[in-house]
Amino acid sequence: MSPTPHVTIINPLAGALGHYARTLKLNLTDSGHDVTAVDLVEPSLADESRFTWVRRYVSALFRVSRAKPTGAVILAWPVLGYWDLVLARLILGRRRTTRLVMHDPVPLVRAVGYSAPARRIGCALSRRRTVIVHSTTAQEAITETTFGVDSPIVAHPLQATTHSCESTESNVPTERPVIRVLGQFKPDRDIQLLADLAVELAPRYSLEIHGRGWPRIDGWAVSDEFVDEDRLDHLLATSAAVLIPYRRFYQSGIAIRCFELGTPFVGPRCDALAQLYGPDSPLLVGSPADTSAWVRAVEQAATECRDALRLRAATATAEVSDAWRRELALH
């Protein structure tokens, strides 16, 4: 009998990517792997410098190398961009299969390690160290900016909720449904779209934004603060719909969370969201700047059957686990 394959997940954003890493662990366990998780809290939550955070990350790589000289390692976020591939080669060694999850091939916020030298050197040393992406858009961005790196598309981690229908449906307001935007502000958020939507939606819906860094937007109640896991689950479960108002993005963890809970989300008709709903869903907007199309999609979402969304998520969970099993079996 062959031994159970071992995988170590190193998550350097334990706050922002806590759910992502936990869900990935469940998917890998479901696919037959023995999984160890290493979590590091990011500087914004640990009240420490970025240098200290990087040092803790490097120390974690050394600990993993000593504890498990074989097996796969998944780096859930690039602390130093493409330089992470160099660190993996130097610290984890040649025998180790490493996967670096590249969420934003062209960063949505300021980041290090994405310069031409970093891409060239990191990819030259990668060999068995594969860059994983979660959407065709992300894969195309890597292909356009990086030469010679393998970047397979592997499904975003997903785990259907076990909450009962009654526990979430009964908490959704019906007299004045709440439409929310959740997550940190980034420059690629479409503020003008939200302002335009408020004119159309405010008479019928309560409009809320929760996340760090958001500016004031007319018609929206903005809560500029970090949203912890428990609070996020409550906000998701009690939303009539959640908006994904990006001009540019590669995947959406908030959309995944909605899908897991059976909460309808509305966003652009891009491959990252179409993977969840299907390309013809009325909840996806073909022309992202078309305010009236967003309004129609929101109205549709507010009446969407959550049982059907949960059923789809349950089916997708098994498919995601199988996709990770196949990916890790390739090397």
Rank of each mutant, 00 (worst) to 15 (best):
I209Y: 03
G81A: 07
R257W: 10
L92E: 03
D280A: 14
V178H: 02
R325D: 12
T291I: 15
G213K: 05
A308W: 08
S287G: 10
L75D: 03
D307G: 01
R63G: 02
A118C: 10
H6S: 14
Q192I: 14
L108R: 00
S167Y: 05
V38K: 00
E166R: 07
W53G: 02
S321P: 00
D271H: 07
S44H: 15
V242M: 06
T174N: 01
A116Y: 07
P69W: 12
S239R: 02
D224P: 11
V41S: 08
R120E: 05
L80I: 08
S170E: 09
E327R: 00
L330C: 11
R176G: 09
A46Q: 05
E166T: 10
G278A: 06
S31P: 04
D290R: 05
S151E: 04
D196R: 07
P107N: 01
R110S: 14
A297S: 06
W53S: 03
V154H: 02
P215F: 03
M102K: 01
K186Q: 14
S49D: 01
S206M: 01
T8L: 00
S164Y: 08
S321D: 09
E48W: 00
R310L: 15
R212D: 06
D84L: 05
D271Y: 07
T29Y: 08
R180L: 03
P152C: 02
P173G: 07
W294Y: 09
W77S: 02
E175H: 14
A308H: 09
S321N: 02
R56D: 01
G148V: 08
R95T: 11
G15S: 13
Q275P: 00
Q275N: 03
N171C: 12
D230H: 06
G253W: 15
L232Q: 12
R63N: 07
P245M: 12
R120C: 04
L28V: 13
G253I: 15
L328S: 05
I244W: 06
I142H: 00
Y82K: 02
A72H: 04
S2C: 14
A111M: 12
T162A: 13
R248W: 13
Q159T: 12
P173E: 08
G286I: 15
V131I: 15
G267T: 10
A138K: 02
P288A: 02
R248L: 15
T238Y: 07
E225F: 11
S49Q: 00
G278Q: 04
Q300K: 00
I254D: 04
T303P: 05
L100H: 10
L90P: 03
V86C: 09
R95S: 11
S281H: 02
L45N: 04
L232S: 07
L80E: 09
S126R: 03
L273Y: 05
G213D: 06
S281I: 01
E304L: 15
A46R: 06
Q192N: 11
D84I: 05
P12L: 10
C123M: 04
L273D: 02
A198D: 06
E319L: 13
